[in-house]
Amino acid sequence: MKLLKLEFLKLKKKSRSWLGPILVFWLIMIAYPLTVELLPEKLEVGFFSVLWIATLISMMLAAEDIFLEDFNDGSLEQTMIKTTSFASLISIKVFIYWLLIGIPISLLSFIFSFGTTTNFVLSLMIFPLSIISSYIFLNLFVLGNALSLNKGSVLGALVTIPLALPVLIVLGKSIVAIQFNINYSGFIFLLLGCLSIIIVAVPLVVSYIIKAHLE
């Protein structure tokens, strides 16, 4: 609990880190209608694709400096030596980032889709889908940033975006399933299954990767 509070306060102080990705998401979603003719049916065609890509980009930005500052000032190394479970510290860090960035983005996704589609169930289902996908993306980009810790976030994004693409495929399929009301809960459970594996595996792998960097 103490660690949770500490990580929360640390991130809260760095307003660029948590506000930046939210604003980028917002701007992408505002920019989208400007690129198409303002006919509601035309707007809805590509809306969800833009929504998921905006979520992906925002999460990529969110994870950009998750370890960098701690790595540069040596506190990451100290924590690794002191803490018995380094992986749990990483999962706390990721959780806080998701809480401050992923949740607001999910709320914004719901609001934007509510304003775009006439299908209420669809805009309602966007919220849980966005919550799950943002957590998955964040974990993946954290993994990427751990790999390219002091080599810039581009390399990290390059190696992890391919892993996020199957999630995008499932998200696209789930939107179609909701639109046609065909057993869309299966897709949500599939994403939840992926998330439950990722939540456990990624912090563990990331802790080993950071150890490799510090050795």
């Binding site: 790999l147 892993l163 792998v205 080993y208 990767i209 050795e215």
Partner: peptide
């Protein structure tokens, strides 16, 4: 040595794509 370790971890994580 560091590159080998990081590469190995990424290969293992990326293996998820093969059954897909």
């Amino acid at each position: 040595e560091k590159a080998d370790k990081l590469l190995s971890w990424l290969v293992i994580v990326g293996f998820v794509n093969i059954p897909i």
